[in-house]
Design a protein around this nucleic acid. Sequence first.
DNA 1: CGCAGAATTGACGATCGTCAAGGGCTGTGG
DNA 2: CCACAGCCCTTGACGATCGTCAATTCTGCG
Lengths: 256, 256
Amino acid sequence: MKRLRYYCDFDDDIARPLLDLPGRTVDVARGTDLVVAGENPGHGFIVETGWAIRCTYLSDGRRQVLNVLMPGDIFDLQVFVSGEADHTVTAVTDMTVKTFRPDHPLALFHSHGKLGQALWWTAVQEEAILREQIVRNGRRNASERIAHFLLEMHRRALIVNEGDGAGFRLPLTQSVIGDALGLTAIHVNRILMKFRDRQLIARSGQWIELLDRDGLVALCDFDPSYLRLDSFPRRLSLAVQGNGSKGNGQTDRSPL
Amino acid sequence: MKRLRYYCDFDDDIARPLLDLPGRTVDVARGTDLVVAGENPGHGFIVETGWAIRCTYLSDGRRQVLNVLMPGDIFDLQVFVSGEADHTVTAVTDMTVKTFRPDHPLALFHSHGKLGQALWWTAVQEEAILREQIVRNGRRNASERIAHFLLEMHRRALIVNEGDGAGFRLPLTQSVIGDALGLTAIHVNRILMKFRDRQLIARSGQWIELLDRDGLVALCDFDPSYLRLDSFPRRLSLAVQGNGSKGNGQTDRSPL
DNA sequence: CGCAGAATTGACGATCGTCAAGGGCTGTGG
DNA sequence: CCACAGCCCTTGACGATCGTCAATTCTGCG
């Protein structure tokens, strides 16, 4: 796998302790739940390939997508301190994920300063993305939300080589987008059609082309600084990635 | 000040390194911005008394309240890794806050294992509250949002002795509540009136009485587990609190 | 007492959801 | 290679929720 780095200023040696944790690499089929709310997964995950969504279900079935996970993302860091997962993680494409299981909660923090620092940084970035999600859904209308969401996905997809300058692959149904943005799939469709009519975007299959990126940015006042792509160790996992299969974790294709 | 503890299983000695950091105790007037988006505060905060809100402003003035801060809350932990604040923190009542300034980013993590663990735990809890906020605003209607919000505030106020069994002090205007829940102040008012008509709540001044807590819980399917009140070190700051003025930080009433 | 900010109320309208139906794409199996 | 099934996208009509605008009342405080 291609090695990914993006504004990452620490060596793989720093991430080594994480890679050396017991864990394995697993293939997961689209639609599989990697983590189920209320259960204790017992290990964390690093996405190697494929996309997933983290979501919460209300008792009547309403769904809220909290975040989209793509290659390079680490999740369930809370495994370091507890506990039951409070949300579900579902694969939306076929995936390969690496699991890791800390022998003792937070042991990594004690013995490996720089790794702890990187993990902390990851959590801070994660939180910033969640906050932006709150603003987007709380104070923006449907068009602004969708434009903003597309721009975020594009930016993040670029980093993990799922797109080129103007276009990217977005393997999410309009239903998922709606559940992320607090809208119905039907309304998402209406807005996307409008964007297409206005030559802002074009779509063929899962490929989205941002025909008028500036127009979208203006529409929603997009400011990507919350993604913190210009800051310290962009994502711990980006440094980790591509090393996991070089002899550390044994690949294991059995189900989780 | 009364010493607050709530499911907290570590000694003050663990928090000592945090308390010993350079910092001071400051009085802040209602309406003051403690942190301004885009600036680097250079230190973290612990709320001793009073309430604050964290919020983001869009360029046209729309405001989204991200979270409500009450006594015992720590904020701007991101000071450990960077950087510019991406949101504003404003006092909504007169406050007393303690500041702390790490001499070196994450030094606390390296030298004080248990403190690092507690800080990590705090961040995890913080994130859970943000996620719940996303669900609330994304997939609940106005009545459900307000009922859910009131129940969360009640629960959190109880812990810091700002309420009794059924009632609590809520020093937030309907405008702030609206900006937290993605509604207008006027619509918040309509719903609160409806709740009052239905004998779900009563209000006199800033005091809210939950006349029919079960009714509210049923209305919004409230499940408080996301607050993680039953888990490990509830809030680092609760252990810290009440110690800060015993000889560590010198009280300082000058403006920030 | 009088001011400022907050709460309250009503009329009206826009955005977005709901319901319903049709069309297209893809994978699978005969 | 075609047929079919299932999922997703698309479109339209209608209605409810919630926002906007405007005016009045209440409350705390100087």
